[in-house]
Structure formats: structure tokens, C-alpha cells
Design a protein around this nucleic acid. Structure first.
Lengths: 192, 192
DNA sequence: TGCTAAGCGGAGGGGGCCTCCGTATTGTAT
DNA sequence: ATACAATACGGAGGCCCCCTCCGCTTAGCA
């Protein structure tokens, strides 16, 4: 009905961009210190920004998590390719899963959100899943080709299982590694 | 200082006992319908009881969980002995773990609380842990003796891993069973 | 029937989630 | 330099939850 006022989308306002960064930084710190269930009001307070501003930018906690962790999740995926180059097939897969577990522990409850999200349909998590899948599938298929992983296993099952490891709270790193070792044994083909 | 008025502890009053039962029933239903994070006020409402009454009886959510699930947890433990009698060592262990997973799925988030509690120090959960440990250890040691499980594995690690399976939300039963199969393979000794 | 320990229930303080809208700021057009 | 939208800000307020505290009620003994 009304005339489309300006077809060209205006660039983000300077103050908006500044506050966005402040919020993501504050959230990153707060999540690291107190876990991902820090109250959003606390985060707004830390960022020196009104709660309204936070909610305008990030409609819910998940949106904020996405912004905070997008880089790190990407880096987890990227690591897969390094392992694929430098290590033998099974070792590469094992190393990647181990780094996945280690990451999950250090970031506390992120792994919970993440693993739960492997079956969700948020925009972001979808594309995240694609990345993880691509990286993991590379490692898995190599390991299968080398005859070191049973061919019928599905990547997503493995990921879910590994993700579950970090979900029990307060997992010690060596504890988690023991659990992962059991899983890794479970991947190998039965003796002929 | 004052005279101990009545050394004999009076029996619980009838209304108190009645309300206790009402609360546990209401909680059981509510937990089944909406998961264990149903608000306690909602539960009191369902029970037709004041919130104060709930809190006097159950100082926190965990206490209520305990009351609701004590029977069922016991029955999970008991099942172990049945399996031990009727099945071959490894199959008995597998069956028990499978029933554990199945139980966890049906009761939604109870498994989360439970598995987390395997490393906690609440009175109740301690004794629960003892029961689980006793039952599980029986099955595990038989399976080890039969040479079907690697001897260095610890029950608690296995339980934690299996518990993790149900933690990802919305796990389909057959999905969960696939994950459990991986774990079960991981228990077996490597080929000689 | 009377009395008191035991039990009841809900108001209220603290806090988190999220929305809404009056006010302030930015950047562009004149 | 100035005016004026478009954009963004921020916090009050509604709603819900957790949990505590204490004046009122009731069961059950004597």
C-alpha cells in the first residue's frame, strides 16, 4: 500500500553494532564463568546495556548461544581436516571425537545444547549440523574404508553417543576419556 | 533444658499422611506428563494442597523425585537378578542395560537426574547407587568371568555411558538401542 | 470436651523471562 | 548547518517460579 520507502537496506547503525559486540563479549565471559544458564538480565547488566536491547537482538537464549559459539563450533569442524591429514584413519576419528568431548567439557553445558540440537530444526543448528556432518563423515568414511570401523554405523549415532558423555555434570577429563575409549572399542569390527 | 515432653514420638497425623500421598501421586502424574521440571506450585495445585505443605514435606525438587521414583528404581535393580538367572552372562548384562535405557526414555528426564546423581552425595542417591552397584556388579562380574567383557572396565563408567544415551532429548527407542549396541560392542574383549 | 503439638496454606520477597512503548540517537537529505 | 525519519535504546511491568515464614486450623490424647 505505502510506497516502499528505501529499497536499499540501510547499514546497521553504529551504536547498534557496538552494543551487539558488547553483548556477545559479555555473554561469552558469563557463559564461561557460570555456564550457559546465566540469566540474560545478568548478561545485559555486564554489557552495560538494557535488557530490551538484548532481547531485540537475540530473541531467546539459543540465539545468543549461536552468536557466542559460532566461531568455536566452526573450529571444531575445521580441526577434523587437520586430523584427517596428519593421522591414520582411525586415530584421526578418535582424535576428533576426543577433541569434541574435551571441548564439551570445557564449555560445560554447551555440549548439552549442541547434542540436543543435532535433532532440532533451528536455522543455525541445521547448518551447524551440516558442517559437523561433513567433517565427521570424511573421517568416518576413511576409517570404514580402512576396515577399522564397522561399515553399518551411522555418524549421527556416534555423535549422539559421544555427546552424551559430557552430559553428566562434573565429568573429569580422564573419566570422560575412559568412556570415550569404550565407545571407540565399540566402533571396531568384531574379530573375524 | 525443658523436660522432654514425650519420649515416644507420636505417630504421623492422619491428614499429614493423606497429603503426603496426594503430593506423591500428583507429582508422579505431573512428572510423567510434563517431565521432571514441572513447577512445584503446579504439583501442589494438582494435589489440592498449599505450596507450604509441599515444601514442608519435600525441601526441594530432588526430595520429591526421590519419593516418586524410589519404587521404580528399586524395581530396575531387582530386574537384574531375574536376568542373571534366566540369561547367559553377557545377555543378562545387555538386557539389564537395555531395560535401564528403556526406563530412562519413558521417564524422560529422570535418567538425567539419576545419572548425574551417580556422582552426587545425597543420602537417598547414595543408597540408590549402592543398590544399582550391587545389582550391576553381579551381572558385570559374571560377564567378565565368562570372558565376554574386558576385565578392566568399571561398572560406574558403563552406567554413566549408558545413562548418557537417554540424555539427548526425544530419543526414539530404536535409536537408543542402536547407541546401546555400540556400547555393548565396546565392552567385549578385543580379538586375541 | 478441652487442650496442645502437629500440620496447614498462602502472602510475600527475590529473581528470571519476555514485551511494549515512550524517549533518545543516528545518519541522511536539504 | 539543520531538520526529520528511521532506527535503536532501556527499563517498567506482567507473568511465573522458587522458597520462607508465621498466624490459623485440626487431630487426637487425656
Amino acid at each position: 500500500m505505502g510506497s516502499t520507502p528505501l529499497p536499499s537496506t540501510r547499514p546497521t547503525r553504529a551504536d547498534a553494532a557496538r552494543n551487539y559486540d558488547l553483548l556477545v563479549s559479555a555473554a561469552r565471559e558469563a557463559f564461561a564463568e557460570h555456564g550457559t544458564d546465566t540469566s540474560l538480565e545478568e548478561i545485559a547488566r555486564r554489557a552495560g546495556v538494557g535488557i530490551g536491547t538484548l532481547y531485540r537482538r537475540f530473541p531467546n537464549r539459543t540465539a545468543l548461544l549461536e552468536a557466542v559459539y559460532v566461531d568455536e563450533i566452526q573450529s571444531v569442524c575445521d580441526r577434523a581436516y587437520g586430523f584427517a591429514e596428519r593421522l591414520e584413519p582411525f586415530d584421526a576419528l578418535a582424535a576428533w571425537l576426543r577433541s569434541f568431548v574435551g571441548y564439551g567439557i570445557s564449555k560445560k553445558s554447551l555440549a548439552v545444547e549442541l547434542t540436543a540440537a543435532l535433532g532440532k530444526d533451528s536455522q543455525f543448528f541445521q547448518s551447524c549440523k551440516v558442517n559437523v556432518q561433513e567433517a565427521g563423515e570424511l573421517l568416518l568414511s576413511k576409517a570404514k574404508a580402512a576396515g577399522e570401523v564397522r561399515p553399518e554405523l551411522e555418524l549421527m549415532d556416534i555423535m549422539r553417543l559421544v555427546g552424551g558423555i559430557t552430559m553428566g555434570r562434573d565429568m573429569e577429563p580422564d573419566e570422560a576419556n575412559r568412556l570415550l575409549d569404550i565407545v571407540l572399542c565399540g566402533l571396531r569390527p568384531a574379530a573375524p
